[in-house]
Design a protein around this nucleic acid. Structure first.
Length: 289
DNA sequence: ACCCAGGACTGAT
DNA sequence: ATCAGTCATGGG
């Protein structure tokens, strides 16, 4: 049985799937407890989130209704988003049916940037472990066991060797340089928020350890740019095996062009349905041929 | 032992 | 512009 947090924010959230949203590789600071509630962070606010009776309950200090709604993407007009999807796409239809309540989060850009710099060739559970280790090692402590994610200025004062102690491997150098770029103001995450998506993407890719895929993840999961379409190994697998039916000689540029044209102005949202589906439904790829 | 993981960087064509 | 090699670490 579940006991949602009793005090705090309560929002109508009909159809919202908290489990799918928080376990689908967007956010890495949340852990689900035995009571089925999630403990994690919205920005610098530690909180507990649970679902009950079509409502989302979030307990934590310093939170507002608008802030929580914005974080979980509950303030978006989903009708218009879904209406922009390709109408006759059986794979996207199946993906949406698998987890209809999956939503795209709007997270804090710096932490999201770090998470995805650390994401390359790592599994989702390992990225969450790195996020936790970075918090404990370098983040300001609110209470015992509660560490804010370290700001750029703080990570910039840490040595590369100290970063390596968080199991970052070859990503330690990337994060080490990236923190200094941001802390020095060489690249402004606030300014990026004001740029059109193509320019914002170019600017993000100036950060060390950020290529096209990571830039698209930050655009989608932090800046709310729903047209950003990250193509990782899973999504590439979906595109090649389902949409191109194993046709050989499809170059990455062609995949990117197809996904932009086919999935449309909110393609990133469709991408997240496909990603979550392909990773969690064992039968997902069986009907490919 | 082997293969894979929400890839990016480097240096060669 | 595009391609192969390389980069640490943990899980299955």
């Amino acid at each position: 049985m579940k006991t949602p947090p009793e005090s705090g924010i309560s929002l109508a959230s009909r159809g919202f799937d908290l489990d799918a949203t928080l376990s689908s590789g967007q956010a890495f600071s949340w852990r689900r407890g035995a009571d089925e509630n999630w403990r994690g962070w919205i920005g610098d606010h530690p909180c507990v989130a649970g679902l009950d009776g079509g409502r989302l309950f979030v307990h934590g200090s310093g939170l507002t209704d608008a802030g929580v709604a914005r974080y979980f993407g509950l303030d978006l007009g989903l009708d218009k988003i879904f209406a922009s999807f390709p109408a006759d796409d059986p794979w996207l239809t199946r993906a949406r049916a698998f987890a209809p309540g999956l939503r795209i989060l709007r997270q804090e850009p710096w932490e999201t940037l770090c998470n995805f710099i650390c994401s390359s060739l790592k599994q989702i559970v390992q990225i969450a472990q790195i996020n936790h280790d970075l918090r404990v090692a370098f983040g300001p402590k609110l209470r015992p066991g509660e560490h804010v994610f370290p700001p750029a200025a703080q990570l910039a004062r840490v040595s590369e060797a100290e970063l390596r102690s968080c199991k970052l491997g070859f990503r330690a150098k990337h994060l080490f340089i990236a923190a200094r770029q941001i802390a020095a103001g060489e690249i402004s995450l606030e300014h990026i928020a004001t740029l059109p998506t193509p320019e914002a993407r170019e600017e993000l890719m100036r950060v060390r350890g950020v290529g096209e895929k990571v830039a698209n993840c930050v655009l989608l999961f932090a800046y709310g740019r729903l047209e950003a379409f990250p193509i990782d190994v899973w999504v590439e697998r979906v595109l090649r095996q389902l949409y191109f039916r194993n046709r050989r000689r499809i170059r990455p540029g062609a995949l990117r062009l197809f996904s932009e044209r086919h999935f449309g102005p909110h393609g990133g949202y469709a991408q997240q349905f496909l990603f979550h589906w392909i990773r969690n439904d064992p039968a997902a790829l069986e009907d490919a041929g």
